[in-house]
């Protein structure tokens, strides 16, 4: 299981990355894509959609399982990964890079301190 060190992790198996422009990129972890199996469908919100803390923002589906996507911080969706909805397999192949899902502009009070670091997340699924 691959858990890059520079990311924040949630107990519902999403990762968040702080970008230099202040946005946050969100995706699912390597563990999650492996548990789901071959992903056949990705549903993402529209750009401009406002998300509350832990709001469900979409789903990823394999043939026989569904993963609901939750965003740990509140904010506004500023970009979605159309490549992932067009070709869901990239979420399996590259969950942390090409297979990212959404970018959000976090609200001012957004706080990542409650999230896990890579070591804690890896320990969760050890």
């Amino acid at each position: 299981m691959n858990t890059p060190p520079d990311l924040f992790y949630t107990s519902s198996d999403e990762w968040l990355r702080r970008e230099s422009d202040g946005t946050l990129t969100v995706g699912i972890t390597d563990y999650a894509q492996h548990e789901l199996g071959e992903i056949v469908y990705v549903e993402l919100p529209e750009i401009g959609h406002k998300l509350g803390v832990d709001a469900m923002f979409g789903v990823v589906e394999s043939v026989k399982a569904v993963g609901e996507l939750h965003c740990a911080v509140s904010g506004e969706v500023v970009e979605i990964n159309v490549a992932a909805t067009d070709n869901p397999t990239i979420v399996n192949e590259s969950p942390y890079q090409d297979g990212w899902l959404i970018k959000i502009k976090p609200d001012a009070e957004a706080d990542l301190t409650g999230l896990m670091d890579a070591a804690a997340y890896a320990a969760l699924h050890a």
Binding site: H34, E35, L36, G37, E38, S62, V63, K64, A65
Partner: peptide, 11 residues
Amino acid sequence: PAKRELAGAST
């Protein structure tokens, strides 16, 4: 053909 796992699936 594709290689896949079926974790948590119910059939």
